[in-house]
Nucleic acid binder design. Sequence first.
RNA 1: GUUCUAGUAGCUCAGUUGGAUAGAGCGUUGGCCUCCGAAGCCAAAGGUCAUGGGUUCAACUCCCUUCUAGAACACCA
Length: 564
Amino acid sequence: MLEQLQISLKDALEKLQLPSDNIKIIKSNRPDLCDYQYDGAFKLAKLMHKNPLEIGESITEELKQGPYKEYYQNISCIAPGFVNLTLSNKFIIDQIKLMITKPKYNITMPKKETIVIDYGGANVAKPLHVGHLRPAIVGESIKRILKYMNQSVISDVHLGDYGLQMGQVIKGLLEQNIAISNIDIKLLDNLYPLMSSRCKIDEELKKECSMITKELQDGNELYQKYFQKILEVSKKDIKRIYDYLNVSFDLWNGESDSYKYIPSLTNELLANNLLKESNHAMVIDVSKDDDKLQIPPLIYQASNKAYLYGTTDLATIFARQQNYHPNKILYVVDMRQNLHFTQVFRASQKLPSTKNIELEFLGFGTINGEDKKPFKTRSGNTPKLDALFKEAKEIFIKQKEENKNLSDQDLDKIVNAIIKFADLINQKEKDYIFDLLKFSLVNGKTGPYILYTYLRVKKIIPNITQTVDNLKENIYNEQDRDIYIKLLDLDNIMQNAFLGRSPSSIANYLYELCVLLNAFYEKNHMNNLEDKEKKVNWSHLLNLATNIIETLLDLLDIQIPSKM
RNA sequence: GUUCUAGUAGCUCAGUUGGAUAGAGCGUUGGCCUCCGAAGCCAAAGGUCAUGGGUUCAACUCCCUUCUAGAACACCA
């Protein structure tokens, strides 16, 4: 839609013999004056050594007489040189017709690419807690946005399954003489924190665990048996949580799956003279001359010959190249891993077979408590996800008497909406404060508010009996006009969400659209509408708006309950 | 210590390549149900955009100072 406005402006600029490349039209920040604005007159004025008001006025005049004049109801230039554009009813309704009839609301689709997206990243043998919420929610949403925008997407959970924690847990199991068949999730949940804290104070124990990890990697049969069982038990639990969140993956690979690629990766590294020894470890130098901060080398093989996470991450890129030939690989991971991925990415770019893959680090912020430190329960523990879901459900039920009658299915969808919307409304890069009470409210920028609005509006849409050809070029008041203008902005929002890998722009748009729909609901009545033309127009308008809400909620991986 | 990120209303946050009067939500105050869901809507109050300088016709936005907070900084992931 913006493109058409740009074309109209380009035409005017060309006729005035002014430079007409890179035309920027933005949504007005003075909605009382106009829908869109063009601020280029200032730069043109400087370039041409003229008065900006003069330039602005000549553009305005040209637009008013040009071939695209019917796009606009009003074009004006206001001192010191802003060009204000107000869309005509005809243009608005024409665009709306296209949104209704063309696939995917006539959104412009980018070039198709093969993209691997790596998110989730749960660690095997470590209990899932609130910290695992973001990579799952943000990653799933970005995946859905990419798919919607026509990309060929492969999602991989990339489990952390071959690191030191495996050695620690196996050591603990051996110490306590636990039979492989007796390993269950409860045991693992308790064992990992115990071993981890013991290793922090006991150097000898840590060394031992590290050796077990190394031998596991080398194929020690007993350790492999333990590993397989731990993987099985842990995966089952991780899957259960992801199922509840409706998060799914094409690949359930882990660090261990990259292991078989290490020999050929090593060969390529050696052939290109990229590996060197440093303090008995094998490292890849990734520093650059203009680094402000010294970037340490990527440790490829530790001095005890064990492979570390940099190795498996590099081997995973290598493996993905061989199996899927991706154009891009996206990593939805904790912001704090920034340096690590800088090292891995640089190493990958030195490698002939992977250097052409574009690697994107999509770091997300921490979920904090009210004290702005990583979220903990009152007793000081990191809360488990099961408990969190249960709490959200209870808080929501308490808000209204009738909520007790909601089905479990609907309640689970609402819990998902509460948690996901609260997360996704924030920019993924930033930390946010976890406050279930606030997230569960039905007013404000919350999931329940969106769901409520949707269900409320959905009920007043009459059956649509007339096609879009019967839409009149008529806009009736401020409320329906506001909604039309908001809907026309969808394309722009989707481009931002896609290019910026930014679910938050969709979440914010959803909220703004819902506010407008509630205002419409309040001031207009769909029942007993005398004016038949108005009824047709509004039916289509509300139908389009609710369809868009459905689509966008799906992109945020939020499902709609049957009632609430 | 070095590097990076952040500091906007009482609280939580938008403000994406510099544009007009810095916007929302929560909270506070006051209004609106004999018509489709009041879990809603409308309105008001609330700001030295951390600080001091600079660049520009124009700075919350770009550059530099200082202060404050958080994060990362070679064998854990």
